[in-house]
Design a protein around this nucleic acid. Structure first.
Lengths: 190, 190
DNA sequence: ACCTGAACACCGTTCAAGT
DNA sequence: ACCTGAACACCGTTCAAGT
C-alpha cells in the first residue's frame, strides 16, 4: 500500500530558496535541503533530476515571485505617466534584490553550469516592462528600450550587491539619477 | 638540502584561469589545477591558502589582464573625440568577455562566497574609463557617468553571456546603439 | 623547504532492500 | 510508490613522513 507522500517538489524548491538566502548557493546541499523538508537526501531524486535541476527550478520560482511583484506596473491606472511607473518598477526590482539577494543572483547572475532560467519564463516576466517601455518610446523601439533599461538596472544592482559602491555617495540617489537620465535618453527615440 | 621549486603561484593561477575557460568554475578543482602544473593537490597549499583564495587570485589576475587591454584608451593621442575612445573601450570590454567568458564572469559576476576582487584593484582598473568620462562630462560628473556606463555595459554583456538575446536582432548594433544613446544622455550633464 | 600518500569529513548520486 | 541505509566516486584539506 502506497504511503502518503512526505514532501513535494514545491516544498523542496522553497527549501532550496530559503537556503540560498541563509547560507548562499554553496549551502544548498542535497542533504541540507532534505533535512529541511524532513526526508533523507536520496528521496529528493524522486522529485528532482539532480542538484542542477533543483537550482534551476529555484531560479524559476524566484523569477515567478519577482514577476508577481512587478506585474501591476503595466497598468496605466496606477499612474498616468509611464516614466513614473517605470521608476516604480525599477525600484521594485532593486527592492527584490535587497530583500532576497540570493534569489536575485539566481535569476540574473546564475552560475554558468545551470544554464539559467527558461527564456520563455523570462520573456513572460518582462512583459510589464515591455508594456511600459512601449508607452514611453512607442512600439517600434520598445524592445530596444526595455533591453537597455534592463541592462543598466541589472548592472547597477550587480555592482551594488558586489559592494562596488564603497566610494560612498548616496546609492539611492545614484539609482534614481541614472534612471532619469536613461528615460530622457530613450524618450526622443522616434 | 632544499629542492628547487617545482611550480609557482603565478603558474597555479594561470592554470586556474585556463581551467575556468575550458571547464567552467566547477572544473577548477585543486587536483585538476595540480595536475596542470605537474604536482599533487596538497602541494598547492604551500602557495595558496585554499580554493577560495585561488579563485580570488585568478579573478584579480583576469582583472589585471583586462586593465592592460583597456589602459591606452585614456590617451587623447589615440583619438581626439572622447566619445570615440569610449566606444572603443566598451568594445574592448565586450571583446574580452567573448574571448574569455569565464575570466570575465570571475571579475564581474563572482560567486557570492569568494568576496570578489579587491576594490582597490577595481578602482585602478577603471582609471582609464574615469579619465575618458571626465573629458566627456567634466570632472564633476565623471564618477557618476563612469558608473552609469559600467552598469549598462556589464549588464548588457551579462545578458549576452546568459543568452538573453535569443529574440534575434543584431546584438552588435544594439550594443553600439545603446552606448550612443547613453553618451548622448550623459553629455549635457552640466 | 617543498613534496607526497594516506586519511578525514563531506559532497552528489545510485541502488537494492524495506514499508 | 515512496523512503532509506549502504555504497561509490569525488571533493577540499590536513598532516606525518619522506627527500
Amino acid at each position: 500500500m502506497p504511503t502518503p507522500d512526505r514532501t513535494s517538489q514545491a516544498e523542496i524548491v522553497a527549501a532550496a530558496l530559503a537556503l540560498v538566502e541563509s547560507d548562499g548557493l554553496a549551502g544548498v546541499t542535497m542533504s541540507a535541503v532534505a533535512q529541511r523538508v524532513g526526508v533523507r537526501a536520496p528521496s529528493l531524486y524522486k522529485r528532482v533530476r539532480d542538484r542542477d535541476h533543483l537550482i534551476r527550478l529555484a531560479a524559476e520560482s524566484a523569477l515567478a515571485d519577482l514577476a508577481a511583484r512587478i506585474a501591476d506596473h503595466a497598468d496605466p491606472a496606477r499612474h498616468p505617466d509611464p516614466a513614473e511607473r517605470l521608476t516604480a518598477l525599477a525600484a521594485d526590482l532593486r527592492a527584490f534584490a535587497r530583500d532576497r539577494p540570493g534569489s536575485y543572483r539566481l535569476v540574473f547572475a546564475p552560475p554558468a553550469e545551470i544554464a539559467g532560467v527558461d527564456p520563455g519564463a523570462f520573456a513572460r516576466a518582462s512583459a510589464p516592462l515591455l508594456a511600459v517601455a512601449a508607452e514611453l518610446v512607442g512600439e517600434e523601439d520598445a524592445l530596444e528600450a526595455a533591453r537597455t533599461l534592463t541592462a543598466w538596472a541589472t548592472g547597477f544592482i550587480a555592482m551594488e550587491l558586489a559592494g562596488s559602491f564603497q566610494l560612498g555617495g548616496d546609492v539611492d540617489r545614484a539609482f534614481k539619477y541614472g534612471l532619469t537620465r536613461l528615460v530622457t535618453a530613450l524618450r526622443p527615440a522616434s
